[in-house]
Write a protein that binds this DNA or RNA. Sequence first.
DNA 1: CATGAATGAGCCTTCATTCAT
DNA 2: CATGAATGAAGGCTCATTCAT
Lengths: 212, 212, 212, 212
Amino acid sequence: MATEHQRRHDTRQRLLRAGGEVFARDGFRGATVRRIAQRAKANLAAIAYHFGGKEGLYLAVLEQSFAVARAKYPPDMGVATEAGPEERLRAFITAMLLWMLDKGKLSWHGKLMIRELADPSPVLDRVVEEAIRPLHDRLAGIVGELLAAEADSDAVRLTVMSILGQCLFYRNSQPVVSRLYPGRFDAARIRELAEHITAFSLRALRGERGTG
Amino acid sequence: MATEHQRRHDTRQRLLRAGGEVFARDGFRGATVRRIAQRAKANLAAIAYHFGGKEGLYLAVLEQSFAVARAKYPPDMGVATEAGPEERLRAFITAMLLWMLDKGKLSWHGKLMIRELADPSPVLDRVVEEAIRPLHDRLAGIVGELLAAEADSDAVRLTVMSILGQCLFYRNSQPVVSRLYPGRFDAARIRELAEHITAFSLRALRGERGTG
Amino acid sequence: MATEHQRRHDTRQRLLRAGGEVFARDGFRGATVRRIAQRAKANLAAIAYHFGGKEGLYLAVLEQSFAVARAKYPPDMGVATEAGPEERLRAFITAMLLWMLDKGKLSWHGKLMIRELADPSPVLDRVVEEAIRPLHDRLAGIVGELLAAEADSDAVRLTVMSILGQCLFYRNSQPVVSRLYPGRFDAARIRELAEHITAFSLRALRGERGTG
Amino acid sequence: MATEHQRRHDTRQRLLRAGGEVFARDGFRGATVRRIAQRAKANLAAIAYHFGGKEGLYLAVLEQSFAVARAKYPPDMGVATEAGPEERLRAFITAMLLWMLDKGKLSWHGKLMIRELADPSPVLDRVVEEAIRPLHDRLAGIVGELLAAEADSDAVRLTVMSILGQCLFYRNSQPVVSRLYPGRFDAARIRELAEHITAFSLRALRGERGTG
DNA sequence: CATGAATGAGCCTTCATTCAT
DNA sequence: CATGAATGAAGGCTCATTCAT
């Protein structure tokens, strides 16, 4: 029956969604399957049925999150590869900040993965390989161009980490940031941040190239 | 027996130490008082007796941690106040990295605070006011000098966050960093990182001042 | 296996029964959910699952107890409302004593409520409103008729308490009664007691009406 | 040293007093030695030191309570033995109610012993023999006179229990009484109650004698 | 296919007691 | 003589999982 099949599919989807929200807010350990099932208006045992257990659901949520992130925030932000490296750096930083700080319905995608970095669960390795390394490699390429250096040279590495660090800070230390600087992070402010990080980093890079 | 007396008498200290290690590794929620008591070779109820409960122990651990950090890595690193702002920035960054990445017996101090940022416990507010804000204000002062701007201007704020972000990255995203760049962070490498962050930020600042 | 299924399926009922027995013997605070689960041959967590916790089970036990009492010993003992007040008083007292002193399988019903009176638990208010007040009002009506007075007059109140006091004494002070007058309280003796209290009270009432 | 000796004596007394208050309010099981020590401003271990433990303190408190009760509320209320039985019954009932319901500093004496009846602890036997039976025997004597019957006849027994029941009701069922009849039990009301119970019982007795 | 019911492990806390000075 | 410190035993509760229909 189509209805049955539909409902089954829906339950699965509702669990994925509810799981994403709860995992992002409370972390893997802090989340409880009860709350997820409740929020998804699904039976408690449905999680075990569909995903084999709490960890299975978590993995599925992450998996889906990767796909969504790739589709919604491509690291080139629509900027063609032929564009100059400065433009591509700006696009990268903007995409990353938007992805992490987006307040929309899917805001938990960013939270979720950042949480995984700070509080590693058994699936961290997959997260790194599938989501982080592609981003990192792309950024390393841009920085390499800007520095006129090999992508795996130490100079590039250090610069990549300086840029990533600036971006991740806003998500990773958000509880502190919001206490030090009360104020909302709306879309406009996020673009301001992206612009600052881009300019800040480009100035540092130009100086380095001049020095080197 | 002197041994017995000794073991009995410093139960409080052993609990503080064991608590620090376990809290740093597992977070406030993930940690269990059982494991802490076990590691401290103390009775389970001793935690309630000395600290009133799990939360009390956590607070005591954090407070002790800040005190130790202030003593071991003073934010000025012995650089006199009369020194130039560039020198003081270098000292600040070096102290922060050393504190966070210290691999010694007290290596959990850095982990502990980062965990608190990523997954706030009920005592985050106290942590921010007592430990974070003083550090932040000192850094804002230095940056203000360098930019010739007010310490609470937006330009200073953005720059402060860029610097903090670069520093925190190495602790905050350590699981990822160690996967992307396998290799050990010994004292020499830490000083290299500090030097890079200092130079990177100073170049960016000089550029901004010139531009502004 | 049908046995297994049977055992699984009426866990709720077994918990109610075991809870009644244990609560009656040890009081709300003295009772432990562990002992109740053990006696019910149920899992410890089943109490939380079915009743939300210790207090929920206690409330359910009390409610069931009142329902059983109403069904087994209706306060009118089958005496029609048209009967004279003396006859209805006799029926009321008899029902109350039988309920409280019943030695059958459900002997804990009486104990349970008396315990609640002597050492109130958080649910006493509900007990009073749902179970005690209806009984009290019925008795006040009978006494009002006998005294030809308003049901809420002080004379009626004092008399009602004198009658209730006589009845409750046998359950309330049972440990003392059994020490002062060793001997068993079988059904025949209970009816003797009911007869005595009825006669004693009616004599006192007649005297008062004559005097008033 | 007199000071030392004095303080020691004081600690003991303070523990007795605090124990009485707490035991009366919370019962033997509900009371905690922590709260008692705290209220007595004494060390936690002082209870074990002075009384051997919780039960020892409880016993000592009861023991002291007997003495106080005998001294403050003699069952004859100062009425000479030569007085008529009716007068002595009135004195007995008045003394009993005052003892149980007294709101003064020593109000816990009554509460304490009544609690013991409803929720027997291991020392109930001593309470019955030392405090209850003397009262009972005296009452049985009075009732025997009034009924012109042997003190251990069944008629006397039933009447004694009817009178005790009326008195005990106000203490034993106090939580319910205060809900059914909101209003304070001051000294004047207590004397009213005593008068009612006396008159009620005397009318019942006169009727019985007339009948018998 | 999906679910209400049940399970066992583990957690934090409270308590009366004992110990060593 | 008195006390701060430490102990072991329970107690109520939550959680992820499994079971039988």
